[in-house]
């Protein structure tokens, strides 16, 4: 390290013997020290990420009820999965949820971020937008469950007062996924907006000044300056949001338990049902591996399409 940054003076014949061994020892010491610092993280990585991943993949090839030893069954779990209509329904329901949730959340968050940047410098306003994110998922889900309850919910009483009539938000097949998706839009939009807001700060202000001088409207500025230059951050935010969205579980678990029938049985809930409801841990592991593969494919596609790692600012 020091050899690169601070080239040593030309060694004398006597000094060469002293310096070379010293520098070699120094490198070894640096490496050992670095390893020492890395070790806790490395142990954590191996113990809490790598080992569970390997074990999860291994379990997907077994039949295991956690009470008796796992039995190797080869590809049987994957064969069962391919012919399991509830699995394919769970994939469909999860994709529907992700499209609604991410679609609305991204647009709303983007609008909020731009409004925060262009119209207000108020810290209070920015904090207020973030407050839903401070509420736990389960609490938020339960609050909306009661607000939107068919018989008792104030939301439904309001709709009735408007003359629209009551809606079974959590109890009808047509409404259940959009409702759960919107509950989570409410909870996550502030956080997403804050990430996008941070991205907006990186766009040079003189570009907007120049655009204004040229007579560009706010909307024109948004589409020609803000959106193109925000693309890398937007791409990363989308990747993070989509992964989180695919993992939706708690909101569904406390509101519908997967119903009506299987209309909200998202993939994570189906994995949970199999693991902790029926103690089919082997099959649940196979479902988890399938979800991992789906997420990897979706993430790589997103990364390529949005070119999330490249900036246009230069």
């Amino acid at each position: 390290m020091s050899a690169v940054e601070n080239p040593a003076p030309a060694p004398t014949s006597s000094g060469a013997h002293r310096l070379r061994p010293k520098r070699a020892v120094g490198r070894r010491d640096d490496t050992r020290l670095a390893l020492l610092f890395i070790l806790p993280a490395l142990v954590g990585l191996l113990l809490f990420y790598f080992w569970p991943l390997v074990r999860g993949i291994w379990l997907s090839f077994t039949s295991w009820d956690i009470l008796t030893p796992a039995r190797f069954v080869g590809l049987a779990n994957y064969q069962e999965m391919i012919s399991d209509p509830v699995f394919w329904n769970a994939v469909r329901v999860t994709l529907l949820y992700v499209v609604i949730n991410i679609g609305i959340q991204t647009v709303v968050a983007l609008v909020l971020a731009v409004l925060m940047q262009r119209l207000s410098r108020s810290i209070v306003l920015r904090s207020l937008v973030l407050t839903p994110f401070l509420v736990s998922n389960v609490v938020a889900a339960l609050v909306f469950l009661w607000i939107l309850d068919f018989q008792l919910g104030i939301g439904n009483h309001f709709l009735e007062w408007l003359g629209v009539g009551r809606v079974g938000f959590f109890t009808t097949e047509a409404w259940v996924i959009p409702t759960i998706a919107l509950v989570n839009v409410w909870r996550h939009m502030g956080y997403t907006a804050l990430l996008l807001f941070a991205g907006l700060q990186a766009i040079p202000g003189n570009l907007y000044e120049a655009a204004r001088v040229d007579g560009a409207s706010e909307i024109r500025q948004f589409f020609t300056i803000t959106l193109p230059l925000l693309r890398p951050i937007l791409g990363l935010v989308l990747i993070i949001s989509v992964i989180g969205s695919f993992q939706v579980f708690d909101t569904v678990a406390v509101t519908t338990g997967g119903g009506p029938v299987d209309a909200s049985r998202v993939l994570q809930l189906y994995i949970y049902d199999n693991a902790f409801g029926q103690f089919n841990f082997g099959y649940a592991a196979a479902l988890s591996v399938a979800m991992l593969v789906i997420l990897m494919v979706v993430t790589v596609l997103q990364y390529r399409v949005t070119r999330a790692g490249q900036t246009d600012l230069n």
Partner: peptide, 8 residues
């Protein structure tokens, strides 16, 4: 109906 009382 189920719509009214839900699954629970």
């Amino acid at each position: 109906s189920y719509e009214e009382v839900g699954g629970d």
